[in-house]
Design a protein around this nucleic acid. Structure first.
Lengths: 228, 228
DNA sequence: CGAGAACCGTTTATCGATAATCGTTGACAG
DNA sequence: CTGTCAACGATTATCGATAAACGGTTCTCG
């Protein structure tokens, strides 16, 4: 049997293809929060039927990236500050738990993956590529989730954070010092996981998430007070 | 304006209607775990199109009640013992947190609702109606979730526990003594919420969930050892 | 002039039919 | 007898078209 390291050029059903395209458009900011998405218009642009677009939008609704109102339409999710706070609070509980579990069962291959993502983040930051940095950041966290051994927990964290990344992380164009600090704050997490210290991993992750959220709050506060 | 305490006799789209019917069939056990669900067959039986059935099945997949495999089919979710353990672990984290928040902000109306659900549970148990008891039990917990003020937390708990209720709570035909004990174990939760003691609510809920899970484990263990 | 009902255009929701997919069966060659 | 592969049947995936729902607008009547 030949090794299957290569994936098919386009995998999955058309519906999944469409949802991938739209997701990417949302992540990249080509679709703005609150913007309406027309089924027929999208279907014409992508040369698929309305049915297929609908299925894709249902998947994205599931992921929390769009909101659908019955008989009215679909729009890109727009998170209020309270919704962000609520999501972060849940994420804090779930992800610190995942990290503690991961510390006990993470494999060398997964540790190597973590290191690779850290390098990607650092490289992207050096090149001022915020979007790529955020993507690699998400991949870093996802690797930790995957190492916790609780599949349901992974699904929930995915649902929880997809909109956070799309509408918070991907957008923040913070100053360089902040980014540097954020990059470094992955290191204690990695060190704790590598040495199997569950409590330390939990603590490192809590600090990482808390400081990221506080920085986000500072960002929005600045923006509000300067625009008023 | 007339008061709107009465709901329309059938609310929502046809797709939602179908998903309600199928959900009910799963809860009631008319669809067994692992059983295949054919789109066309269901469409014929319910006099709707296959498209509508598909949309309903997507919703149910989202709720975790069915599993869909691409190009292959849909079957009713069948949880392994490990998946149940994993879900319960997450539920423990999220619901104890929700209870603590609820203790601080629950309204008199919600407290009355809780009491009503407790009465329903007790009445159903007296009549040996396990299914209705489980339904009221779920309603009791849902009311607590709703009182926590974190909408996302409610959604996650719903997703998490829907299959647990469908495949665990609704089925257990335990002995009367166990049921009595389970009924009573809601009382400390209610008392803690009413008096606004967050820590006590957390503790009461943890004990309730833990003992329910342990009882479930005893049940499956007995069944396994007796059938071997 | 103003309130409310009927209309109209846009968008979603549903339908019936066709296309693509996958497991299976059975024929056939080695 | 056994492994391979092509054709079949059952089921999902997708399509194009029609129906239903909603919001805004205009028209009517007091």
């Amino acid at each position: 049997m030949a090794d299957l390291r290569l994936e098919p050029i386009q995998s999955g059903s058309r519906g999944t293809l469409v949802s991938d395209v739209v997701r990417e458009a949302i992540y990249s900011g080509r679709f703005q929060p609150g913007e309406a998405i027309r089924e027929m218009q999208l279907a014409r642009e992508l040369r698929v039927s309305q049915t297929t677009v609908r299925e894709a939008l249902l998947q994205l609704e599931h992921a929390g990236l769009v909101v659908r109102e019955a008989n009215h339409g679909t729009r890109v999710t727009s998170l209020s500050e309270e919704e962000i706070r609520d999501r972060v609070a849940i994420r804090l509980m779930l992800e610190t738990s995942a990290a503690a579990d991961a510390a006990r069962r993470i494999t060398p291959a997964q540790l190597a993956e973590l290191e690779s993502h850290m390098n990607q983040i650092a490289a992207a930051v050096r090149r001022n590529e915020y979007y790529e940095a955020a993507q690699a950041d998400l991949a870093f966290h996802r690797t930790i989730w995957g190492a916790c051994g609780n599949q349901m927990l992974v699904r929930m964290l995915d649902q929880l954070t997809a909109p956070l990344f799309a509408f918070v992380s991907m957008r923040q164009s913070t100053d360089v010092a902040d980014l540097r600090r954020r990059v470094r704050s992955h290191e204690p997490i990695f060190a704790a996981l590598r040495s199997g210290r569950a409590a330390a991993a939990r603590k490192a992750l809590r600090e990482h998430l808390t400081s990221s959220y506080e920085q986000f709050l500072r960002g929005t506060h600045e923006r509000n007070s300067s625009s008023d």
